[in-house]
Write a protein that binds this DNA or RNA. Structure first.
Length: 318
DNA sequence: AAGCCGTGGTC
DNA sequence: TGACCAAGGCT
């Protein structure tokens, strides 16, 4: 492996993503924020719209801890998996101005599992530990020829593959290799420093084996925007789905909607179902909601689907 | 352990 | 354009 590592670092020096802002920073808080944002989210998305505005609003652990949950969710709006934002906020309050360094303490914080704990320890504190993410999993499966592998086996292989002599660079480089050479839908083996040792060079895309995906069910609903005296009714979601976000009233398709004006239809695809909703405007008061002007609504965190409904309302008034 | 949890980019 | 994918965690 020694020779392959050497090729690897040469490749990394030339082709690595050395300009990533969280890689240029030594502030554990900024690295921590990046790790949470990057969970199940592509680098490009985080970089384009979320990382810098969030840090401008909450430049330190203290400012984040002192913010309200609504403020934090507003800065997370559009990024998805909103539990991440609420857990990040909770963790900031738990930390009392200092983020812990050990994997054990990090894992104890809400929203930080083993993968994120290792990443923070490795990147923020330069702890010599292997990291694990979608890139590393894919590389390990191909390198060791694993069609499928459970978490336990993957971590074992991660320690095997790890270069303890250059832990920090190794971890950064391995993700870059997965992102630009050993990719999910293409493998550029001729550019890979590990190709001569890899079990999957003959058929890289066969590793790991793709899971059979179940067809996503469709849920049909009716979204009703209630207007009364120039204000609109919204309520803060208190169940697991989109928890903490504000939204308009929703009804099952079976409920009869009367005395309403149909504004249009929206479609929103989620990770486990597809929402197809008709959007209505109703001039009426309704209980158990709070009332906002359009200007006030702009300060609330809404889901993508509710934003689409709001856009239909805007169109109808032009 | 498998399902839930969002959204946008990509082809 | 629909399906896959992404620096995963939690229950």
């Amino acid at each position: 492996m020694k020779k392959a590592y050497k090729l690897f670092y040469k490749w990394y020096e030339k082709n690595g993503r050395h300009d990533l802002p969280w890689r240029l920073s030594s502030d554990p808080y900024r690295i921590w924020v990046s790790e949470i944002m990057l969970q199940q989210t592509q680098v490009k998305t985080v970089l384009a719209r979320f990382y810098f505005p969030f840090l401008k609003a909450f430049p330190s652990l203290e400012t984040l801890a002192n913010a309200s949950e609504d403020e934090v969710l507003k800065m997370w709006e559009g990024l998805g998996y909103y539990t991440r934002a609420r857990n990040l906020h909770k963790s900031a309050k738990l930390c009392a101005s200092v983020l812990p360094q050990s994997v054990h303490e990090l894992t104890a914080l809400p929203g930080i599992g083993r993968s994120t704990a290792h990443a923070i320890a490795a990147f923020a504190y330069k702890t010599p530990l292997p990291i694990m993410d979608a890139n590393v999993k894919r590389i390990l499966c191909r390198f060791y020829g694993l069609k499928k592998a459970g978490e336990k086996l993957l971590w074992e292989k991660a320690y095997d593959f790890f270069d303890a002599e250059h832990p920090y660079d190794f971890n950064q480089a391995i993700m870059d290799l997965g992102a630009s050479v050993c990719m999910a839908k293409a493998a550029l083996c001729h550019e890979c420093p590990f190709a001569s040792l890899c079990m999957a060079v003959d058929d890289p895309l066969a590793y790991p084996q793709k899971k059979v995906k179940k067809s996503t069910p469709v849920r049909r609903k009716q979204i009703v925007i209630h207007r009364h005296q120039g204000r609109f009714a919204l309520k803060q979601r208190d169940t697991r789905f989109l928890n903490g976000l504000w939204g308009f009233s929703e009804y099952e398709q079976s409920d009869a909607i009367t005395t309403t004006q149909k504004l249009g239809e929206i479609v929103q695809v989620y990770s486990h179902f597809r929402l197809e909703a008709e959007v209505y405007l109703r001039q009426a008061h309704i209980e158990e909601h709070e009332w906002f002007t359009l200007e006030e609504i702009n300060k609330l965190a809404l889901s993508r689907a509710d934003h689409k409904a709001l856009a239909l309302l805007d169109m109808s008034e032009k």
